[in-house]
């Protein structure tokens, strides 16, 4: 029960931290990092909610959700980094 709760609380904590950073920070790289932390926090909540402590079994559906989330995150991070690089490259325009 307590270990179960630890993952939930840690995931929620990461999510909250990331949202706060995202709202207060203007630096491109830090925002990208915050988005990654946000996604990991949410994935942690998902994975923790898929674990049934009473039976010791895990539900694969939240894991599939988390996996889709990670795929999306990787591609969006790549797009964001490409955009950030171009914005930086054009600073002399």
């Amino acid at each position: 029960m307590t270990t179960d709760l630890v993952y939930h609380v840690a995931g929620a904590g990461l999510t909250g931290l990331a949202l706060w950073r995202l709202a207060t920070c203007r630096d491109a790289l830090r925002r990208i990092m915050a988005l990654n932390v946000l996604a990991i926090g949410i994935a942690m909540v998902l994975l923790a909610s898929g674990f049934d402590a009473a039976t010791g079994r895990t539900d694969p559906v939240p894991q599939a959700f988390a996996l889709t989330g990670i795929v999306v995150l990787v591609s969006v991070t790549a797009a964001l980094l490409a955009l950030a690089e171009r914005i930086g490259g054009r600073s002399n325009d």
């Binding site: 999510t15 949202l19 995202l22 491109a28 925002r31 990208i32 988005l35 946000l38 996604a39 949410i42 909540v45 998902l46 909610s49 898929g50 559906v61 939240p62 959700f65 889709t68 989330g69 999306v72 995150l73 969006v76 797009a79 964001l80 955009l83 950030a84 171009r86 914005i87 054009r90 600073s91 325009d93």
Partner: peptide
């Protein structure tokens, strides 16, 4: 440069929005 900056803000806001959406969908499943 202005369009790229706007696209960056759009994408990061959109990603935050869709992550909230994903969390909501997962909670709905739970």
């Amino acid at each position: 440069r202005r369009a790229l900056r706007a696209a960056f803000d759009y994408l990061s806001a959109g990603l935050a929005g869709s992550l909230l959406l994903l969390l909501g969908v997962a909670l709905a499943y739970a």
